[in-house]
Design a protein around this nucleic acid. Structure first.
Length: 640
RNA sequence: GCUGGCGUAGCUCAAUCGGUAGAGCAGCUGACUUGUAAUCAGCAGGUUGGGGGUUCAAUUCCUCUCGCCAGCUCCA
């Protein structure tokens, strides 16, 4: 028989040959590195029996698909080890996830950290034995009986759910698991892995079901890849905004105040006010008007908006004010709409772009709270664009460009879009959805942003674009959202009078560029690892004298800089310069002015940059022009 | 909310078998007047997250509660 290789060449094999036979025939080296194969587009094991004219691509550890196979096999290896060590434990499922895998076990005794070590050791032993991993197919009734006898009722449930007459099993030594496969040919291929954590997880992700014990792990083909991954985790840990937020005194939360409620400390507040100033300026420049609205509103308002029907789970209990129920706001939109409705609107008024740094409160379950990234009270950089149909596309264009420009300024250049279209359960005419979705598509195409389509992923009230930004270590964060709303204009009966004198319904778009200031700040901290660019740094310049003699000169320098709006601190303590530098360095202050007698006597400054570089004996005026430049340009560099 | 882990000085951490809490940094005071990531000495700092229980005795064991961490679930 003949099979076809990727280069279209044919190779002859004896009937009944497997992929492994083919690999061996091509070269011994290929056979050794072979993990699996793609036959007519399907990924199969090396033991797969080939047929006449099959198109075969042998997958080695170089192929992307192989990594998933390896990780899946590692999950099995882990289950194998767990079953040997804890015979009472029932196995459930063990899929591959990004960068690794997990396996869920049903056990009465949760795994401890020590157990993880033991399991890992056993896995290594099993790997060293290089046990063959063999596939077999059996009748599903037979399989059900087999797993029932073993007491593996989860497997029985899975087989019944699959509903096929035949199912495949994978065996390695004394361990057999139900699995679609494919797998690496033997446990010896699994060398570089690490078990990372253990946590509870519900069977089938349903909190009504029993909670299982999930062990997470990672696996790689090369030791260097594993090491690099572990490094990446450590790097992420170093950048953790919760750690840096505390070290750099940026923000705090307090048991006494409540969880998920953020206090911005002086240093964090300086960054925030810089962000806000920039934000306001840019919004005015881009044709927005700013609004301020209250934090609470009557129940009737939230009834009209529909929030009490469909969002009440996220809203806090009402407070009674003179017999009326008031709710603290989870969103700003109803307030903006009331302002819209405060007078008759003409087509001449449109588009309206109304923005507000609006602080909202939403109930989040205690278990989901996370630093600045998931909180109960936060300030959205919210805006509502109210426009006519013929304006929607240009409005979306502008929002996208505006957003890109803002992200660029903050030092994020890699951005990806996700367009979510109409879900099954939704409100609004098809024509509205069509027009809006088209405008989103056209705009994102024009913007040049790489994007994906999320069919049916829109909110019930309209389609949306979400933007994810990539940070300095390649993690993606969902920040910007641009959403059409066909619900609220209807509910509040928003109208404008068009050219023809008829009342029409405007389009309404919600958008948040940064998302929320809290979340954005968290991401910003992680992106810069706390070392903010000059224009954002809470303390931009620290002036330090060598000895008392230069104190006055330092004070006069500080005064000049402060008068010009720079954020400056002085360190005139009787300490060695090394001590002062170390402290400023730990606070990641961009510029340190080191002032000794040389500088003082000649009206100069010596600048030590955060990166350790020195700019010696500059005229103050030269230094001043440099910092003015990098500050007004919002440069991400420490020097021009 | 659920499962598991954790909670000791402002911060980072220690305390044997249950025997009544200790260090570094930070803070304060003093000396040193200093040239690129920690000068020296002294002082002070704690209801061991909170409540209840077991015990002659609890940071330690039990229990409730609050908070944090990992994940699940949730994010119309």
């Amino acid at each position: 028989m003949n099979v076809v290789l990727p280069d279209k060449s044919k190779i002859e094999l004896v009937d009944g040959s497997t992929v492994a036979d083919l690999a061996k025939k091509i070269s011994e080296g290929l056979y050794k590195r072979a993990i699996a194969a793609k036959v007519n587009g399907n990924i199969v094991d090396l033991s797969y029996k080939l047929n006449e004219n099959d198109e075969v691509t042998i997958l080695t550890d170089k192929d992307a698909e192989s990594l998933d196979i390896l990780r899946h096999s590692t999950a099995h290896l882990m289950a194998h080890a767990v079953q040997q060590l804890f015979p009472d434990v029932k196995v459930t499922i063990g899929p591959v996830i990004q960068d690794g895998f997990f396996y869920d076990f049903d056990t009465n005794k949760p795994f401890t950290e020590d157990d993880l070590v033991k399991i890992e050791e056993r896995m290594t032993e099993l790997s060293k034995k290089d046990i063959k991993i063999e596939r077999s197919e059996i009748d599903s009734n037979e399989a059900i009986k087999k797993f029932s006898d073993m007491g593996e009722n989860y497997k029985v449930e899975i087989i019944q759910d699959i509903g096929e007459s035949k199912i495949s099993l994978y065996s390695q030594g004394d361990f057999t698991d139900l699995c679609r496969g494919p797998h690496v040919p033997s446990t010896g291929h699994i060398k570089y892995f690490k078990l990372l954590s253990v946590a509870g997880a519900y069977w089938r992700g349903d909190e009504k079901n029993k909670m299982l014990q999930r062990i997470y792990g990672t696996a790689w083909f090369k030791k260097s890849d594993l090491d690099e991954y572990i490094n990446r985790l450590e790097e992420a840990k170093k950048r953790d905004h919760r750690k840096l937020g505390k070290e750099l005194e940026l923000y705090g939360t307090f048991d006494e105040i409540g969880s998920g409620l953020i206090c911005w400390m002086p240093k964090g507040a300086k960054v925030r006010s810089t962000i806000e100033d920039f934000w306001r300026k840019e919004h005015y420049k881009n044709g927005y008007e700013l609004l301020y609205t209250p934090h609470i509103g009557k129940a009737t308002l939230w009834n009209t908006s529909g929030h009490l029907d469909f969002y009440s789970e996220n809203m806090y209990s009402p407070m009674d004010i003179e017999g009326q129920n008031y709710f603290i706001k989870p969103m700003n939109c109803p307030f903006h709409i009331m302002i819209y409705k405060s007078k008759n609107r003409s087509y001449r008024d449109l588009p309206l772009r109304w923005a507000e740094l609006g602080t909202v409160y939403r109930y989040e379950r205690s278990g989901v709270l996370h630093g600045l990234l998931r909180v109960r009270g936060f300030t959205q950089d919210d805006a509502h664009i109210i426009c006519a149909q013929d304006q929607i596309e240009s409005e979306i264009n502008e929002v996208l460009n505006f957003s890109l420009q803002i992200w660029k300024t903050f030092g994020f250049s890699s951005i990806k879009g996700y367009i979510a279209t109409r879900p099954a359960k939704s409100v609004g005419d098809d024509s509205l959805w069509m027009a809006a979705t088209n405008s989103l598509m056209n705009s994102i195409k024009q913007s040049g942003i790489e994007y994906e389509l999320d069919e049916g992923g829109g909110a019930f009230y309209g389609p949306k674009i979400d933007l994810k930004v990539k940070d300095a270590i390649g993690r993606e964060w969902q920040m910007t959202t641009i959403q059409f709303d066909f619900n609220l204009p209807e509910r509040f009966d928003m109208t404008y009078v068009d050219k023809d004198g008829k009342e029409k319904r405007p389009y309404m778009v919600h958008r948040a560029l940064l998302g929320s200031l809290e979340r954005f700040f968290g991401v910003l901290i992680e992106h810069y690892a706390g070392a903010f660019p000059f224009w954002l740094a809470p303390v931009q310049i620290k002036i330090m004298n060598i000895s008392d003699e230069q104190a006055e000169y330092c004070i006069s320098l500080g005064k000049k800089l402060k008068e010009n709006g720079f954020r400056v601190e002085l360190d005139l303590r009787n300490e060695k310069i090394g001590y002062k530098i170390r402290e400023a360095q730990m606070y990641k202050i961009p510029h340190m002015l080191v002032i000794g007698s040389q500088e003082k006597d000649n009206n100069l400054v010596t600048v030590r940059l955060r990166n350790g570089e020195n700019k010696n004996n500059l005229d103050f005026s030269d230094y001043f022009s440099v910092i003015n430049e990098i500050n007004t340009n919002r440069s991400i560099n420490l020097w021009r």
